[in-house]
């Protein structure tokens, strides 16, 4: 398990006027994606797919579910003003990542593909907020 930690003890977002509405919209979309991801990765359907996988797949899925849970809490508590620049810088990657994620979770064709996609998406989120 990779050690990830909070980006800081902030409970609120102070939005920079210049960051709105694009970054605020992107921010809300990413949080919504993370919420949707945790719901789908804890779903009976996903669990059933995992049961057909290897022990290593299941262990890896556990790590990714924990990482998604932490990411949605960290991003949810983040200060938008502080991450606005990084959001803009990584916007193309974030958009590409969320599209791939949606497709992988919709189809659930291969456990490896889903877990790779989740991991890649979290890596991009990790460029915006510190998850390590």
């Amino acid at each position: 398990m990779t050690k990830r930690s909070s980006s800081g003890p902030m409970a609120v977002v102070r939005e920079a006027p210049s960051s709105r509405p694009d970054t605020a919209g992107l921010y809300a979309t990413l949080l919504s994606d993370l919420n949707s991801t945790i719901v789908r990765m804890t779903s009976p359907r996903f669990d059933a797919v995992l049961q057909s996988g290897s022990a290593e797949d299941r262990l890896r899925a556990m790590r990714e579910i924990l990482a998604v849970e932490k990411a949605r809490l960290v991003l949810g508590n983040a200060v938008l003003q502080e991450i606005a620049t990084k959001l803009k810088e990584n916007e193309p990657e974030l958009i590409e990542g969320r599209e791939s994620l949606e497709e992988a979770l919709d189809h659930l064709e291969s456990i490896t593909k889903v877990l790779d996609t989740v991991s890649s998406f979290l890596d991009v989120i990790g460029k915006v907020v510190s998850l390590v």
Partner: peptide, 21 residues
């Protein structure tokens, strides 16, 4: 999936995040 040596740090992080919420 969390190595024992990382569990304390993991639970503390989640506790802090939830307290903020």
């Amino acid at each position: 999936a969390i190595p024992p040596e990382n569990r304390l740090a993991e639970i503390n992080t989640h506790n802090d995040l939830l307290k903020e919420r």
